[in-house]
Design a protein around this nucleic acid. Structure first.
Lengths: 361, 361
DNA sequence: AAGAGGAATTGAAACATTTCAATGCCCGCA
DNA sequence: TGCGGGCATTGAAATGTTTCAATTCCTCTT
């Protein structure tokens, strides 16, 4: 037994300020097992090259010493990395929290670790995270971009980082992407409301620098024009800076102050709709009697609101999974790789929060 | 059905299989700028040691070449790491998605990258993730443990990894922890229902190997005993394997089949309660008229369910933030560091889903 | 004119791995 | 007895940083 007395301070009974100074390395394992460094590495990475007997010896040394491999060193020499970055726009939103499980389950199977970043819709924070992820040499990045410009993502990919866009089409098929047709989503919502007879619609939108927001507006306008309305007349749009319940309440206040109050509101996501519903109730305005409300995303609890929320459903689980799969193929791809654009179609889910407008009077 | 415009496989015109083979290193930058390797490092890490003029030269070389530092190499040599692991029990649950923002915002400020892992309540998966995180030499780990045994976490900390328990007390103050008093939470729920006059309560609990579940049960039993009831008589507990809406529906079915149907149901979390409410409505059972329902966590939409859900509120934002702060001090701690246990008290939020039981008859 | 003091820069070691050419060893076969 | 051929193992180079002692080059003092 060639035991090694490392310079590791053994902990004193009481206080525990002690930390192992220098971790064990494969050299220590090799010494303990009486083999060379290379053999230890082989046991770990290409066991088929090592004799049974030797393997057992090495493995038991690893266990005895409590050796833990050093992933950064491994990555430095080996080049490859088992981490991927996921950059979402708002980590706390139910939308992303319904997408993440699909991503996680797929990538966990492939033995990848997820670095989750929240850009909070700030291009600066996004840029910072992208830089940091690149420094960490992640194998790939799954991103729902904050700004409209994705040039920097294309460059990123050219530098060897796998990139898959979430919720956004890769222009000119330069990048893989998984998205839901947002124009169609806006159209569905608008079509539903106009068919019910509404002629003036409030639209609580996010900043139109965010592509999803711009697309949904386009769909909404398209629906308006189809029934012969002038979008600029029929739709009063309010740009929210925060896309949550709080934002919904703020937006509603503005719409109600409008000289020509709308009879229906289309909200950019379900959380905003939650704020609107909550505030309508507080103000004693009946929904959908006096005011119809449509949400977006159809998050899990939309069906359980009071009134149950009409919303645009996104196939979130599939979205996450498809994105993760694409990412894996993206950086597996050595040579023959086509950029894929997977587009899911959204679906209108009609519930109790929408009805025809009150009789004109 | 949401259709998928499947593999719209647009091929790339020019082969872009090209990837940078070998990344640039600081050596290249040094050569380009006509200085030594050490100087480049100094520019990056201790600029105060480098003359203005030289700094400018080096920085412009970095920009010109598009050099991106290699974090793994940096970590290998420097020892320190700017990553922390967050191991939650279910990444998709609204509970965690309301806690994560607090964690993220605090740690982003400290320039840490988050590796988010979902144990899915499986001790095996948890163990796998912990091993991987340790290999990656994360500075610390924030964890809501899946199993009851936390011995392995104490060992982890002794090996130099910062550990903070989320939602769980660190036994004998061996570990820092941030938690909510779950016994108290169970007590509050039980007390509320018994005070309303209920005498038989269904309890849709998670596996009692999960500490939170065991604690809440204890609180519930305590409340029962306080009003002179035998817990085993008054409470029919059902153990759910999945703690979401689906689980709630399954559990409800079992409770209704019971020969002695309860008049109220206490759910281990709000998602389970959502399932119960949804299914009660489907079955035409009035809530709270025929069946009262209490949730747990008071997630953001609980107030907007129909009926609005009575629930136990956890200070989630603070929980996340406090945990992140503790984690930072934990691995900053060189010597003088006391293990802290921060315990928040839950709060009963009474809404429309609870009422006295129907008149006996 | 010589030397001290200080700022800026350099060179080399160290970090923990992987990889691969080279070596050693044993066995069977001629 | 000698030799070719596998299999198992080894040794050393390479990966991209940080750190720190050593060196160079100034300027200021005496």
């Amino acid at each position: 037994m060639s035991d090694i007395d490392r310079p590791s301070k053994t902990s004193t009974s009481g206080s525990d300020g002690e930390r192992a100074r220098t971790r064990l390395s494969m050299v220590d394992v090799a010494a303990h097992a009486g083999v060379s460094l290379g053999t230890v590495s082989n046991v770990l990475n290409r066991p088929e090259l090592v004799a049974e007997r030797t393997q057992r010896r090495v493995r038991s040394s690893i266990a005895a010493l409590g050796f833990v491999p050093n992933a950064p060193a491994r990555q430095l020499r080996g080049g490859r990395s088992r981490t991927v970055g996921v950059v979402v726009r708002e980590i706390g939103s139910p939308y992303f929290s319904e997408i993440l499980p699909g991503v996680e389950s797929k990538l966990a199977k492939e033995q990848f670790l997820l670095m989750v970043c929240s850009s909070d819709d700030s291009p600066d924070k996004e840029a910072y995270y992208l830089k940091t992820l690149e420094e960490h040499r992640v194998a790939g990045i799954l991103i729902s971009p904050a700004g409209d410009d994705i040039e920097h993502l294309i460059e990123l990919r050219q530098r060897g980082v796998g990139v898959v866009l979430l919720d956004r089409l890769g222009v000119g098929s330069q990048l893989c992407s998984v998205a839901v047709n947002n124009v169609q989503g806006g159209d569905l919502a608008g079509d539903h409301l106009f068919s019910l007879g509404h002629r003036r619609i409030g639209f609580l939108n996010g900043p139109s620098t965010v592509r999803q927001c711009a697309d949904r507006r386009e769909g909404l306008h398209r629906a308006a024009r189809r029934v012969g309305l002038d979008p600029d007349e029929a739709i009063s749009e309010i740009t929210l800076s925060v896309l949550n319940a709080q934002g919904g309440e703020t937006g509603l206040a503005q719409l109600l102050d409008d000289e020509r109050r709308p009879s229906a509101i289309f909200c950019i996501n379900d959380m905003v709709a939650v704020g609107v519903l909550r505030d309508l109730e507080k103000r004693g305005i009946a929904a959908p009697g006096e005011m119809s409300v449509v949400g977006y995303d159809d998050v899990e609890f939309a069906a359980l609101l009071s009134p149950a929320l009409t919303s645009i459903r996104m196939p979130k689980q599939q979205l996450g999974q498809a994105a993760a799969e694409l990412l894996v193929t993206d950086f597996r791809a050595d040579d023959d790789h086509w950029h894929q654009e997977i587009v899911f179609q959204p679906e209108l889910i009609v519930r109790a929060s929408t009805a025809p407008p009150p009789a004109p009077g």
